[in-house]
Design a protein around this nucleic acid. Structure first.
Lengths: 335, 335
DNA sequence: ACAGTTGCGGCAAGCGGTTGCCAAAAGTTG
DNA sequence: CAACTTTTGGCAACCGCTTGCCGCAACTGT
């Protein structure tokens, strides 16, 4: 018989056995200061002896606290999210919470539907790389506890890696290698990062007297790299900045196929420093960031919304530093 | 105000508005055949108009069904599990369930504790690459709905990729390239797969008149590759079979560092065909399998335990075919 | 037309906790 | 030692939904 057989003891059993009221048991277990130390110890002992453990569902119903957090990512197959997931999982566990992970497959509809569906069963949401509009996010945030990863929307707490400064680092790096023309291979139209990055590229490029062009959007996955690579080549630029490492790696493969040498013929840079970026060939120069930390911070932010700490105003819009991991895919400008 | 403001309508509101009893509303929504079509439609209409949605917690408490499944993986940072996670997530969603993912960090204790903790809030568990002992698994399975991935334990439904046949494919491939000595770099002692694979290596190697040695265990991660590579080299074998791709990739890196040419000096094979295996250098020959499908099947098995379908005895111990992805890391035997 | 089914809706008792309110007990104070 | 404040434990009303059981009304068959 796979399913439960013996009825698990309830708070009633413990109360009876300990000779106290259920309310006292409840308090002894979840609000220790509310009950005399002696009584509490007795109750705890009885509970242990009976093998009692509180039923989270039953607890959640009247209290509203589920000790569960939800994390939704735009594409669970993108290794980039690994770090974020891991960090979030760690922090959630440290806070005694369970983490639910949802893949929203780049769809804003799935994203909001997911929130609606889970709204009543979790204490809050972390949405990573949301594809929703600012307006939709604000609206959701009005009804649910919500923090963002890799996205900033006025009023909603968020954790991101500094991609503006990161983009500066990329351009400076390319400039220092003599590049005068760069092309940005854009990610999904709905990606906030895609927009921000391109915005960051322009002024810095101008400052270094570089021409910058944008192409795309391309699917931010390895398979999007072929088209991106061809487009980059067609643009005549000597350096290509891909929306993310997946796309960059796809481009590297396409270049290899076409006999284009990297970095001799063209330099390639990505974002995220995902698993594999350091052992593809050539190893990819990419913007790295503390993504586990981002995941942790996002969960922290969420928890601090739930448990407003005394005179400890929650930080909002945390920006973590990024740094360029310089590898083999960038080199001196060609012509 | 981030948290909920307006009280969401309950089944009572709907009942009042529709002029029926709450029980009727409940049935209309979750047990449609039990109520007259006309009434049902009316109730559904009222519910919709009121913006009602059922509270999953409240539903779960009396019914015991949470519509939630848990998946625990031994190491969430191993890309191998991506496919499994994805497949499981898909299938769970298709069945209207939510998936909880837990990382058990290679620890059998964390694994069982996780099950205990979530036991009451979940309809069942999929445990991938369990590190628990057979006995512990059986015991857990006696009290919880449980299916296994990449592990077989008598009586517990499971989904695995055929690694025995896969191992045969690997050895045959190496034999056909003239290798006469092979070394197996073992994974964690508690890994069932590690044991099974080595068991599979021996007879096949013997059949091809090859010598086979086992070294290890090594941590099944990239960083474990250095020691594994050195050990493999020390063994004098011309071909190395790594416990998994992570280890294999780590080995490739170490070989590159030491100036050992792959496959000229030594051939390397991995298991899993993870993200990156095809673009490391040289691209890794590895045993590929339908891991998304494995995830889906594991969830299916779980669901069929929950909802015993009429005369449809649940399949148990599903074995999916594997195939060797032959790439650049294997070649003619050296000496 | 009458007894026997069947279909459909309602009643009410849970599911296993939490928590506001209250009273008894214990501790303080002058 | 009386009057007052603080602890501490109990009572009971929920939280929002499910479900076994009951009874009424509408069918069925003869």
């Amino acid at each position: 018989m796979p399913p439960e057989n013996a009825k698990r003891p309830t708070i009633y059993d413990v109360a009876r056995e300990a000779g106290v009221a259920t309310s006292t048991v409840s308090r002894a277990l979840s609000n220790p200061d509310r009950v005399n130390a002696r009584t509490r110890e007795h109750i705890v002992a009885v509970a242990e002896q009976l093998g009692y453990s509180t039923n989270p569902l039953a607890r959640a119903l009247p209290s509203g606290r589920t000790q569960t957090l939800a994390l939704s990512v735009a594409d669970i197959t993108n290794p980039h999210f690994f770090g974020i997931i891991r960090g979030a999982e760690q922090q959630a566990r440290a806070a005694g919470c369970t983490l639910i992970i949802g893949d929203t497959e780049e769809s804003p509809e799935l994203e909001s539907r997911n929130v609606e569906r889970l709204g009543r069963s979790v204490d809050g949401f972390v949405i990573a790389a949301s594809r929703m509009t600012d307006k939709a996010i604000k609206q959701l945030a009005a009804h649910h506890r919500l923090t963002l990863v890799s996205r900033q929307v006025g009023g909603v707490p968020s954790a991101i890696v500094d991609h503006v400064d990161g983009t500066r680092q990329i351009i400076e790096h390319l400039a220092s290698l003599g590049h005068r023309s760069v092309v940005y291979l854009a990610g999904p139209r709905r990606s906030w990062l895609a927009v921000q990055r391109w915005r960051a590229v322009q002024p810095v490029a101008r400052r270094f007297d570089m021409t910058a062009a944008r192409l795309g959007p391309f699917p931010p996955a390895v398979h999007g790299g072929a088209a991106a690579a061809d487009a980059a080549l067609g643009s005549g630029a000597t350096a290509a900045i891909a929306h993310n490492d997946l796309l960059a790696i796809g481009m590297l493969r396409r270049f290899a196929e076409r006999g284009v040498r990297v970095p001799e013929d063209i330099s390639v840079v990505g974002y995220d420093d995902i698993f594999g970026a350091d052992f593809c060939s050539p190893p990819l120069t990419t913007l790295a960031g503390p993504f586990e930390e981002v995941g942790r911070v996002a969960v922290d932010l969420l928890l601090s919304m739930r448990d407003p700490v005394r005179n400890h105003p929650p930080r909002r819009d945390v920006v973590l530093p990024s740094h360029l991991a310089i590898r083999g895919s960038t080199g001196q400008a060609s012509r």
